[in-house]
Design a binder for these strands. Structure first.
Lengths: 336, 336
DNA sequence: TTGTAGGCGTTATCAA
DNA sequence: TTGATAACGCCTACAA
């Protein structure tokens, strides 16, 4: 049974205004009235109606998240869980949306904004010159983005330091005695991809290693892509001693290529990935990989958005979180 | 800029009621008025405010989904995507929730219901005697459940025919010439787990094979659990020729045990899983597994819920979808 | 400290 | 076919 504030007021023998005050400004209410009203609320299992509250306050207490396409986002469950939890702690609920068939991303966004269905938005997979960010910025609509960009204005974002992640991998490999370290990366033009390549170059340089351009291959995500790239790399003379990839699935392609050539992963060639997917843990040998702290990202995104909601004109904050290296058999030689 | 229905009515030179009719009952409006109003809507980029609409109609146009804990639900991205898309086609948006820390599932549910924040709910991981289902049924609140149960009343659910899935696996193995087929299943007491065991028994019987109780091991999810169970099974005399599991990760544990013993998966022992996870595809050999059609489930769940919303007292519908066998190297002998 | 009244944006009702 | 008006449930003034 759904109760209204009026039901409560009648049961407690007070006016609706007083009940409202109990909820929103308890310090204005006398002790006895307070407890009387609280009891009535309890008895009736009353909760304020969000729609009505939102209508009056021009706030929906809802934030929106543009759901990425299937297969795009590793650990979506972890991420969403933390977004929901953090949002709840701010008395906010999360609603998901994605463009309707035939509708483009910007239109979908514009619709979210003009319908007033949400107080703010969380974007992910931000990229160079991201038009969604430009749109929301121009409209002055509160948002926070997962991923930085290269736009001529500041906006609130949270990013994972991919350069640091790849650098951790390279450092680890160097410590293992590797000196011909190859990289399988994405084609140029994605912010997160380029960050990872930068991290590779930086770490190679710091280790005093010459980053041979022949050891950098660019390709899209995928097992087969990784396999093909690995064959190419294994054909180079001298052969790379280790292959780093910007995504786990690429690394599994490298596993396959190594097996076909008869190279033992771990002992004869080091292989590392990025994402710390389930498969990385389950594979044999396990795949050394970079774990992205999605919980932290989720929490930071909501916090940044909430800050925006409260102070739309404050300076946009940004957060860069450091990923973590998970070392497994694929980069470690088994003792003889 | 957020516009109201009043802005539109003024621009079009009609009353707000007429604008509302254009939106909700266009057949009541004359052609010229209609186009005048539509133009004004277009010009102002007007969208009705969901909160206000919901307040008046006692409908929020929001449905809620209880987010399962991280790691529980394979292919959450696929599932959510389809839920969002199907919901959108019914003019419904999806909102996620999960119990606050310290709050139990039933309380969270009760809160969703009494706040009136959502029109209906989608539950997942339904089990025997599911108290959430009982609660919502007793309250008469619209919902649809992913997973059937054993309750003394009917309710709308969608389930994947796990018995059929495991039966497909067994039939496939029999066709490959296997006759000692073991099963690693979950402990008794879960509906979906017991379904899968039933499917095993049924298919064994149909194949004229004696289901040796020594070849059925019950354990919880996990790599290590699968590995231990496999060691036990491989100790039986005569040794099973194939091991079926009710979850992929268990199967990878079997892979590991086989490798340690020196048994070649595929050639010397057949192994099959359930879920068709990414890892199943990426492993070498690939893991034969049962693919669950989560898109279909998602679509059916929303459709069932919508039916409920429109006709709360109709007979609850149920949908049982058939999973699909994906055959990979783990159950196929490589030709010599 | 408590009560009353107006309005948030929409839809439904009823009269014109 | 259209327009005026009263809800829907809540919060914020302001009055008592």
């Amino acid at each position: 049974m759904r109760r209204t504030i009026r039901d409560v007021s009648q049961r407690a023998g007070v006016s609706v205004g007083t009940v409202s005050n109990v909820l929103n400004a308890p310090h204005l209410v006398s002790k006895p009235t307070l407890s009387k009203v609280l009891e009535a609320i309890e008895d009736l299992d009353y909760r304020p109606n969000r729609a009505a509250r939102g209508l009056q306050a021009r706030r929906t207490h809802l934030i929106g998240y543009r759901l990425p396409g299937p297969g795009v986002s590793p650990a979506l469950d972890v991420f969403l869980h933390q977004v929901v939890a953090t949002a709840a702690s701010h008395d906010l609920a999360l609603t998901l949306f994605s463009p309707r068939p035939g509708q483009d991303d910007l239109e979908a966004l514009r619709e979210m904004v003009s319908s007033g269905d949400v107080d703010g938005l969380i974007l992910s997979e931000t990229n160079y010159g991201d038009r969604r960010v430009v749109l929301l910025h121009d409209l002055g609509f509160p948002f926070a983005a997962f991923g930085s960009s290269d736009l001529p204005f500041d906006f609130p974002w949270v990013d994972i330091d991919g350069a640091h992640g790849i650098a951790l991998v390279v450092e680890h490999l160097v410590a293992q005695g590797h000196d011909r370290i190859a990289l399988i990366a994405w084609p140029e033009g994605s912010k997160s991809g380029d960050q990872r390549v930068d991290g590779y170059h930086l770490a190679m340089e710091r280790a005093g290693l010459d980053p041979d351009p022949d050891l950098l291959i660019r390709t899209n995500n995928g097992f087969e892509q990784g396999r093909r790239a690995a064959f190419e790399l294994f054909g180079r003379k001298p052969r790379p001693t280790a292959v780093v990839t910007v995504q786990d699935e690429l690394a599994f392609g490298v596993f396959a290529a190594a097996a076909e050539i008869g190279l033992r992963v771990g002992d004869e060639v080091g292989v590392a990935g990025f994402d710390d997917s389930d498969a990385a843990r389950l594979m044999s040998p396990g795949l050394t990989s970079v774990r992205q702290p999605f919980e932290q990202v989720a929490e930071a995104l909501v916090d940044l958005l909430v800050a925006r909601l409260h102070e739309p004109d404050g300076d946009p904050q940004t957060v860069l979180v450091k990923p973590e290296l998970v070392i497994r058999g694929s980069t470690v030689r088994t003792p003889a």
